[in-house]
Amino acid sequence: MSDENMNNPYESFRRLSEMWEKGLNDLLIQSIDNRELIRMTQLGVGVHSRYIERLKRNQELMANIMNIPTKNDVANVAKLTVQAEEKVDTLQQQIWSLQDSFALANQEQHKLLAEIMEFTKQLHTEWVHSAKDLAEAKKITTEMKKMRQELVEARDLKTNLLELKQELIHFSDLKNEVNVLRELLKKEKEDTALAVAGAKE
């Protein structure tokens, strides 16, 4: 304890009273902790209760005779207000429940709409893709037709080429024949020359 506290009469008084309070409380608890006092208390509670009951009964009786409302009458009216409040609460809860259902339905609708939107978007994308594919397919068909045309033309060309080849073969044969004839002519010329030379000699 500091000197200041030691020297403060109020602090000493407080400490002393604290000690006294504790001591007295312990004594009080010890002294009231007995069955006789409990029995006495129970008896006192009974008597007091009977007194209150009688008082209330008489109060009601007097009020009835004097034709004035009692606290019970006021309480009964007040109870009606409480009941009305309870009904409002029940209604409020039902409104909340409805609000929640609407909110949930709304949420689900939003979800569904979002899904539909997503699906439509996908459809659109697919549509665009299909359109592209179709255009490409058309392009390919045209190209195919063109190619077929070209193929037909190529076939004609091939026929022509074959004909040309045939002619070339024919021409080659002709050339061979010409060469043979040329060889024969040359040989005849040589023979003729030899015959002429032989004759001169």
Binding site: F13, R14, S17, E18, E21, L28
Partner: peptide
């Protein structure tokens, strides 16, 4: 609370 003089003594102190 029994003898509850503490708060009053504290107030004076």
């Amino acid at each position: 609370q029994g003898f509850n003089i503490g708060p009053n003594v504290n107030l004076v102190t």
